[in-house]
Design a protein around this nucleic acid. Sequence first.
DNA 1: CGCTTAATTGATCAGGGTCAATCGTGGTGG
DNA 2: CCACCACGATTGACCCTGATCAATTAAGCG
Lengths: 226, 226
Amino acid sequence: MAHPATSPSPAAALTGRMVWMASLSPREPLHAAGSVVHFPEGREIFAQGGENDMFFKVVSGVVRTCKFLNDGRRQIEAFYSEGEVFGFDLGSERQLSAEAVSECTLVAYRRASVEMLAQKDMTVGRQLFRYAMQAMTRAQEHALLLGRRGAAEKVAAFLLNLAEQSADHRNIALAMTRQDIGDFLGLTIETVSRTFSQLERDGMIELVSARLVRLRNPNALEELAA
Amino acid sequence: MAHPATSPSPAAALTGRMVWMASLSPREPLHAAGSVVHFPEGREIFAQGGENDMFFKVVSGVVRTCKFLNDGRRQIEAFYSEGEVFGFDLGSERQLSAEAVSECTLVAYRRASVEMLAQKDMTVGRQLFRYAMQAMTRAQEHALLLGRRGAAEKVAAFLLNLAEQSADHRNIALAMTRQDIGDFLGLTIETVSRTFSQLERDGMIELVSARLVRLRNPNALEELAA
DNA sequence: CGCTTAATTGATCAGGGTCAATCGTGGTGG
DNA sequence: CCACCACGATTGACCCTGATCAATTAAGCG
């Protein structure tokens, strides 16, 4: 609202193609309430200030959630990849926007439907509680990272986080741009780039390509990230 | 564990005097499960790594939750004052420590008891969920504050936060030291102090005393905090 | 094969950290 | 009651990390 350059389409979210009745994880009690949705790279999934009536689980691809400041600066709150849930928010208005970092497939759950479910099935309510707590823990760790750490420490911690949730714990495919990484870590693209280069010079990582990082010395990275 | 100077007593928490059967807010379904506890200034309420079996509501005084880095640096995650709930954590181990900023009175709830209650009373479960969501939102806003903002913006936002939860929205009594504020905002004591002085020179605030701030121009502060 | 956008690298600058001295205040004991 | 002490807060001088401005290189893509 406040800014022309930011938040592109006020409430024009959920324009992804929907396919009803997900056939994913049939054992999950939530599965009946979800519908599969698909978003192309860069598409907004929901907007800050928009209606808070759904949440999502990532099936494939990567999603970012972020806030925009009135001067155009952007803070990325988190990246979500396969199996993770996002879009929990207190109140009726979205505090964050969500966008597809890469082309991605999600399962969308209607809050109202899920809350109905939770009435009948205790485990659903407990699961929602766990999701909320996970989001809280993640946000707290993010705040810790942003608080009092240098550029190298931030980047090292970021890479290690990606590594541990990656299939191959050594080779990390970065779905996001340097700008995304910067906005997540509170750094500029230049500093992110320079830090990558420095870590490579120090033999800790190898930049196979701009978007593919190989960890050469994870222990040294751990030490850096502290 | 990792650091001698930090985390003073590993698991020596909850040494406050307990008084059973709180007579506070009798309409709250939780009240039966809570006991009143009292902590002197500076006392540890629970420790990072300790057992996660209770949570707390502040009756009076101020509490801080924080993490310690291996090099002794400290990040304060949040301050809690009257009416606020803290000590929610995922898993069986505490991710954070909690300490009394000032002498304070709390109500302590045993997780196990509360979860029993939640089985019988739907509203308890929903209330717990709301607490978790509030903690999440708070952590996200904190991360936003730490991400890409200058010292003046941080301090202004901090003061406005305190103001809106203070009885007198103009005169703010700071329960915490400059060190606490610095560790919360990711700044040094010197920078916090300098920023206060600068804001006073700019006519936005008045430092009645080191621990009592009067807002002279809240609008200008709002603009700064953006 | 250009065109566009992302990424890297360099040079310079400023905000905030660090080190150090001083001030102020509250508490204690003579 | 006042002198002293201890600790928090303030202020100053200087330095360093990361931001900014600018140019170049690399990589997709029509």
